[in-house]
Amino acid sequence: MNAVTEPHRPYYIPNPSPYPVVLSGALFLLGLGAALRVNALTAGWWVLGAGALLAVYVLFAWFGRVIGESRAGVYGLQEDRAFRWGMLWFITSEVVFFASLFGVLFYERNIAVPWLASFNAPHSALAPFSPWPHFTAQWPNGGPAGQGFEVVNPWGIPALNTLLLLSSGVTVTWAHAGLRAGRRTQLKAGLALTIALGVTFLGFQLHEFSEAYRVLGLTLHSGVYGATFFILTGFHGLHVTIGAIMLAAMLARTWRGDFTPENHFAFEAVTWYWHFVDVVWLMLFVFVYWL
């Protein structure tokens, strides 16, 4: 926040840094390992593992470096704004990612399935030649060649999970209020509560997946319903996991004495991300579980 008092302070340009290129290398290994692994080559596991270890190391080192720079006071108002805009655009790209997945759900449910069933319409000239004469347009749907399955009851675990995530949005805001007012205990308690709610959510979600597989017969193989169900809830769960890890990092930094009531953008960025994940869940609850 020095920029307010020193208007001519030059923009901070970091010195040459090894982290970006090493992170690219880690992602290369992860990509290569995944491509080998899905084609049943055992070497894939080793490459994946090496990539994952390297990625974890670089993320620690790179973020550690940025945190160090922040603590050393090399960032001013301009750098702070650059981080804010950067995070905002990153979340925008995430919004597009999830919007695409919801678009896929909409397309499969309202266009693809009715179109497949239209072959069987009573007055359709194609009806006698339909390869799937007993197929009707309905949702949930496992497709003409699909096996039967049951769907998750939205008013069981999913409703409870909605409650958990919404509460976590409140607790993280409460923590933020504590941080801004200088009440560190409230900050720590709020963060810890938020993480606990997030982890509980994840536990329930895992339980739900295992029930789906073992009891309901709802799997990745369950046609378009299973595919859209698991890709949407799965990627959301992945984001909750990442969010919880980031919250834990914020808690660790709080414990170490980081963040001041004026200067705590890392914390704010994580709360933005957490609220974003929250909103995605609400959409999931309505369009995947409920309607």
Partner: peptide
């Protein structure tokens, strides 16, 4: 996931659609 994990986003047999 369609290629390796049994989903049917782009295959009509599971209710999906290659045009998607």
């Amino acid at each position: 996931t369609d290629r390796h994990f049994g989903t049917h986003f782009f295959s009509a047999s599971g209710g999906g659609d290659p045009v998607l």
